[in-house]
Design a protein around this nucleic acid. Structure first.
Length: 272
DNA sequence: ATTCGGCCCTGCGTGC
DNA sequence: TGCACGCAGGGCCGAA
């Protein structure tokens, strides 16, 4: 479900309801997510929430005693709901607050995560090797081209590799490469500097616009209030294999890269 | 060290 | 109507 824009839209939606609240109960109905939800997840109880922030696609609920780490995986979502809202299928976790609301985690495929960490987040093994945030100046063409030196694998796989830059999933990787006119299969280390500059700009532009639009709703993404996003109406290649290119009118090609569907225009994005 | 493929899981659309 | 199959917004892990 979520790439960075959807996670950020979720964060913006839930944060006002959580900040300065104190969890009174953590209800775990199914702890078998990507990793089992640990017993120490209960340590958030009684700890006032002082921030809700995001790193890569992780949502972080910070207290003085430690931080709850939430990842939505492919199909996860978070809603803020009144206590006593009836349970639905795949509602695995409720964080009950002292304001008569709860944060509810639903995840059909259970690729998501709910963890607890008491040290500074940069020490966490999941965070220690993450690349820069795409919407900050730490992601720039100098940094990116340096990271790609000598890489033989496809540029699209590098764009989706959290060591290079975080938060770019399959939808926005396809879209950014189209906008930058780079063939997704091109060897990453061979792409010229000017094209990489276009790519960096495209990533920033597309992610920022998607956040403004409330994210991309393909099937079922909704924000914390249950409303869908509208960015899907602006997608040029993702989900459009064998349709015509918006720019040149030729048929879009569809291939697999890293087992992920990849759509591009062979005319606008030549191999070169 | 890098790259690649498998895998975790449920649900939905397609085609027989 | 039912069933088998393939595919889906992510990312870890082990093999080569």
């Amino acid at each position: 479900m979520p790439e960075l824009p959807e996670v950020e839209v979720t964060r913006q939606g839930i944060a006002p309801h959580l900040i300065n609240q104190t969890p009174v109960e953590l209800i775990i109905r199914n702890r078998s997510l990507r990793w089992p939800i640990p017993d120490v997840a209960q340590n958030i109880i009684g700890q006032k929430i002082r921030a809700v922030y995001r790193r890569a696609k992780y949502l972080l609920v910070e207290t003085q005693a430690g931080t709850t780490i939430i990842h939505l995986g492919m199909s996860g979502s978070l809603r803020v709901l009144p206590v006593n809202t009836p349970i639905e299928k795949h509602d695995h976790v409720d964080l009950v607050l002292d304001n008569k609301k709860l944060l509810r985690f639903n995840d059909p495929r259970r690729f998501g995560a709910w963890l607890w960490y008491e040290l500074p987040m940069e020490n966490h093994p999941l965070f220690s090797k993450l690349g820069p945030e795409p919407l900050t100046d730490s992601f720039n063409v100098e940094q990116f081209s340096t990271a790609l030196i000598g890489k033989t694998k496809a540029i699209k796989l590098c764009l989706m590799d959290n060591h290079m830059v975080v938060g770019v999933g399959n939808i926005y990787a396809n879209e950014a490469l189209f906008k930058a006119k780079i063939n997704p299969s091109a060897a990453a280390g061979q792409v010229d500097h000017a094209r990489l500059g276009e790519l960096v700009s495209a990533v920033k532009d597309i992610l920022a616009k998607a956040i403004t639009q409330g994210g991309t709703t393909l099937k079922d993404f909704t924000n914390a209030e249950g409303k869908p996003g509208y960015f899907a109406q602006k997608l040029h290649v993702y989900g459009r294999g064998n349709q015509t290119c918006d720019v040149c009118g030729h048929l879009l090609s569809e291939i697999k890269l890293g087992q992920r569907t990849t759509v591009f225009c062979g005319i606008c994005q030549p191999i070169k």
